[in-house]
Design a protein around this nucleic acid. Structure first.
Length: 483
RNA sequence: GGCCCCUUAGCCAAGCGGUAAGGCCGCGGAUUGCAAAUCCGCUACCCCCGGUUCGAAUCCGGGAGGGGCCUCCA
């Protein structure tokens, strides 16, 4: 199946044709590590992790890189403010970022290169650009000469002359043109620095991505991704310096994810309206956040609110109840089922897999894919009803079919990175006193029901409900759950 | 001022020329002693005005409203 992807470069959907057959290289711009991650920082990683999962499931060998920018003006300012060093700040914030990704099950990233580990590559590239006449040293700085690149502006449809007219960019006497950007910045006193042919200094903002992308993935890669806000100037500049350096296409497809909003504004550190991930995860499951991020198309802006999160949570609850149902009927955990095998199901169920794949192959339409997941959930619950699997002594054949058909749900949800592990086991059933007590009360209630003493039965159920225990009566037995 | 993008039910959301997926909420019904859970059913003048077309939420033009970028930003 042909996978179609919208590229910012051409402003339309393109067929995914790998540079190297069977392989996909993917570079996504990661964070500048000066402050703890907020929810918006998770959008890209979750989307691209999902894209990789889908591509791998589709048979591609995918190499996925997210960079860490650990040297930048922001780090210098923030570390000074906090009285710590740039490396210490970078290490701390990077660790926070990794923890967030881990919570969200973003675990398909192959490497997280750091800018400061690639100074030699960066220096080599800057030298090369100077040699080729695309950059010039100026009083300790080195700038990319925008005028030397006739293609400059092709990603964002930007005209360099317009940039001059705008005059909102930094005008420096060291630059030839206002649109020129720093490849290397000379160090001021007390700033961290590395020696270079142009004096002590540090890399400019965009060069690290070009250097690391080329080193780890090659001169031409398949997918370059990042937030919509990086289109300009970051990606435009990366593109210009990379292609000026190699003379080859830098990335075939440019993907940009929409930005997270709170209220009706973009969530960002500079707006000061960011929701820090660590804080959010104290109140909500990471899985709920992941699902929220996947519920709309990756290119759309996504609205964040507490209510939205709770709404997504309620939707997910239906799946969690199903997993308990599955375990009760099959006697095995849903989470233990093998992944990647939806084709083994009955054709009626496997068809959901096909539909799902079609949606994903059309520019990674996770929202539509999630819709299929809900349809499938309904179909599986229907199967339980029709086959009377919730009744005592169900047919062994039906149970076996049920298990096989549930492989579809396991496979598809795994592509989205959902339901990766059981949600935290509630403490009541683990408690060796409370669990048996609840069971005993249910037993008493069922005795009362047999004797038609519904007043007593309802009294017991009401009391348990007050204690946040919900009783579920089924044919032949009664279960219970928290909440 | 320049460059992008968005506008679908109470809310979220898919849709990419053939008469509107899905979720949340709500309302009926099946089931239940009653509930819960599950299943079934119901809820859309697709922002407005023109145009193209046998046919448009989908294409084109204009208008209104909203957002992003042009300065650090995922």
């Amino acid at each position: 199946m042909t996978i179609r992807v919208y590229s910012t470069l051409t402003r339309r959907k393109e067929d995914l044709v790998p540079v190297v057959a069977g392989k996909i290289s993917m570079y996504v711009c990661g964070p500048t590590v000066y402050k703890p991650s907020h929810v918006g920082h998770m959008v890209g990683p979750v989307i691209f992790d999902t894209i990789k999962r889908f591509l791998v499931r589709s048979g591609y060998d995918v190499k996925f890189v997210i960079n860490i920018t650990d040297i930048d003006d922001k780090l210098i300012v923030e570390s000074a403010r906090r009285g710590t060093s740039v490396p210490a700040l970078a290490a701390e914030v990077t660790a926070d970022y990794m923890t967030c990704l881990d919570c969200l099950d973003v675990n398909s990233v192959d490497s997280f290169p750091r800018a400061t580990d690639h100074i030699p590559e960066i220096l080599a590239m800057i030298s090369g650009l100077i040699d080729k006449g695309h950059a010039y040293a100026s009083d300790g700085d080195v700038y990319f000469d925008v005028g030397s690149d006739p293609d400059y502006g092709k990603l964002c449809n930007r005209d360099p002359d317009q940039l001059e007219a705008g005059a909102r960019i930094e005008i420096s006497s060291r630059k030839r043109n206002p649109g020129d950007f720093a490849l290397w910045k000379g160090a001021k006193p007390s700033e961290p620095f590395w020696p270079s042919p142009w004096g002590n200094g540090r890399p400019g903002w965009h060069i690290e991505c070009s250097a690391m992308s080329m080193k780890l993935l090659g001169e031409s890669i398949d997918i370059h991704g990042g937030g919509l806000d990086l289109q300009f100037p970051h990606h435009e500049n990366e593109l210009a310096q990379s292609e000026s350096f190699t003379g080859k296409p830098f990335a075939k497809l440019w993907l940009h994810n929409g930005l997270m909003k709170t209220g009706d504004r973009k969530m960002s550190k500079s707006e000061g309206n960011e929701i820090v991930v660590g804080l959010l995860l104290k109140k909500h499951r990471a899985e709920t956040l992941r699902c929220l991020l996947l519920s709309s198309h990756y290119r759309s802006p996504i609205e964040y609110s507490e209510d939205r999160l709770l709404e997504v949570q309620r939707g997910l609850d239906g799946f969690h109840r199903f997993f308990q149902r599955f375990e009760r009927i099959v006697g095995e955990s849903f989470y233990g089922l093998p992944t990647g095998q939806f084709e083994l199901a009955d054709s009626h169920f496997a068809a959901y897999g096909t539909r799902f794949v079609e949606h994903m192959a059309d520019d990674f339409n996770t929202g539509a894919a999630l819709g299929v997941l809900h349809d499938l959930l309904g179909a599986l619950n229907r199967f339980v009803e029709v086959s009377r699997l919730d009744h005592p002594a169900p047919s062994a054949v039906a149970v076996s079919d049920f298990k096989r058909n549930t492989l579809v749900l396991r496979d598809l949800s795994n592509i989205l990175g959902l339901f990766q592990r059981p949600i935290s086991v509630d403490t009541v059933s683990q408690d060796d006193l409370a669990g048996p007590l609840v069971e005993f009360l249910i037993e008493l209630r069922n005795d009362a029901r047999k004797n038609k003493d519904f007043a007593m039965a309802d009294r017991i159920r009401k009391k348990l409900a007050d204690l946040n225990v919900t009783i579920e009566d089924r044919p032949g037995s009664s279960g219970w759950r928290r909440g």
